[in-house]
Amino acid sequence: MEGDMDFVSPDEVKSRIEQALPGARVQVGTFSGHDHFEAVVIAPQFEGKSRVQQHQMVYQALDGLLGGAMHALALKTRVPESGSHEE
């Protein structure tokens, strides 16, 4: 049904990204309404990838949500600093 398809929680977005990028550190929040998301993703898989490619990896993990339940995603991606082991 169109109705309930239109809501997704930040936690769900977070877990989808974590499943697609094991070992990634992910923060997800919303701004100006439940369908505007912002996320920071720090993943070892981004190593050697351009920004566009890094973002595309995150978008793939959220396939089908963007443009629907997620009107917008302000995304920042980074490779973990080498040797940083903070938990």
Binding site: V52, H55, L66, A72, L73, A74, K76
Partner: peptide
């Protein structure tokens, strides 16, 4: 462009990104 949202920016025929990436750059 294999990119689900707009805006989309192309420079010199190459897809550069959306608002986030262009702002960061």
């Amino acid at each position: 462009s294999n990119w689900p949202t707009t805006p989309q920016v192309f420079i010199n025929g190459e897809f550069v990104g959306g608002c986030d990436i262009v702002t960061e750059m």
